[in-house]
Design a protein around this nucleic acid. Structure first.
Length: 299
DNA sequence: AACCAGGGAGCGT
DNA sequence: ACGCTCCATGGT
């Protein structure tokens, strides 16, 4: 039921949802911070999101239907308090991260865009991943009108579109050595060699093995897709920040082998370890940056 | 100006 | 099963 101007608007009622933290926390790379809120493309529709009292105001260009596509993406129905209650209560470090990152959430992203985004993420800073993601969208994605006729945004190109690009075209999007990986993944999906939708119903181990078949996808990137796209609650990506955070606070600063780390994570963080991971990651990144700038100010 | 970034493949031991 | 090196590119 579109109104005459074709603008659709709704408010998702939700408490403890920090939109800024969530959309900038390195789980999704396609969101742009605006003067008032955020814009991006979800499920083929350009969207504006604004934090308002009691929830999130959303506007979409085109027909928004029943908004389930965006509700699912934002995971506004998730009972965050119930998840936080499953965290180990005596873990001072994690509890501090929860306090300092109040309202940080996990999104539920479309598998292809998530997989592609994290193939591009290898040894890249988040701002750079966003830049590469943006170039891909601008050059090869579909243009979608923003609500109210105030411009447009570009969605992430479908697998078939990416598969049809040359390695040189991809490299021009500044992804460097990741270009052949992304191209091969797009081809693998387009050819039907891997069905990203089917994985949704699989158990964690089987899903993980399937994702590891992609070239350029190792343990870390697989965990990201398992957590951010498929919502496996115990998926636990360990990147440099999380590794530092875990080593510093649970192993006395010792360098810990991956296997040992995995065992600790599985027994310590509980049924929503993935959420715990996101709090540790975000907290480490924020305080880590603070420490760097403090060090700079000494000179 | 060196060092690092939400890593992984390919090699050697 | 580990330990290295290389892989582009840009930020700090």
């Amino acid at each position: 039921m579109g109104n005459p101007r074709g603008i659709q608007e709704t408010i998702f009622k939700v408490v403890d949802y920090d939109l800024d933290a969530t959309l900038s926390s390195g789980q999704a790379f396609g969101w742009q911070r605006e003067a008032n809120g955020w814009t991006g493309v979800v499920a083929g529709r350009a969207v504006q999101l604004v934090s308002v009292a009691g929830g999130i105001q959303a506007r979409a260009g085109g027909d928004a239907g029943d908004w389930s596509w965006l509700r699912d993406y934002l995971q506004t129905e998730v009972d965050l308090a119930a998840i936080l209650r499953t965290f180990p209560p005596d873990d001072a470090h994690l509890q501090r991260a929860v306090r300092e990152c109040r309202g940080l959430r996990l999104l539920r992203q479309p598998p292809w865009e998530c997989l592609a985004g994290f193939i591009l993420s290898a040894t890249k800073q988040i701002v750079q991943i966003q830049q590469i993601h943006g170039l891909l969208c601008e050059r090869y994605g579909d243009q979608r009108p923003l609500p109210g006729g105030v411009g447009s945004r570009f969605g992430f190109p479908e697998p078939a579109r990416v598969a049809a690009l040359s390695e040189a075209q991809l490299r021009r999007c500044k992804m460097g050595f990741r270009a052949p990986y992304l191209r091969a993944a797009a081809g693998q999906v387009t050819a039907g060699a891997t069905d990203l939708e089917k994985i949704r119903g699989w158990d964690l181990e089987t899903a993980r093995r399937e994702l590891l078949r992609f070239e350029g996808v190792g343990p870390k990137i697989a965990e990201c897709v398992l957590l951010f796209a498929y919502g496996f609650p115990t998926a636990f990506p360990v990147d440099v920040w999380v590794r530092r955070s875990l080593g510093d606070h649970y192993f006395n600063g010792r360098a810990v082998p991956v296997q040992e780390l995995a065992r600790f994570v599985a027994e310590h963080f509980g049924p929503h370890a993935g959420y715990a991971q996101q709090y540790l990651f975000h907290q480490a990144r924020v305080t880590g940056r603070k420490m760097l700038s403090a060090r700079r100010n000494e000179n």
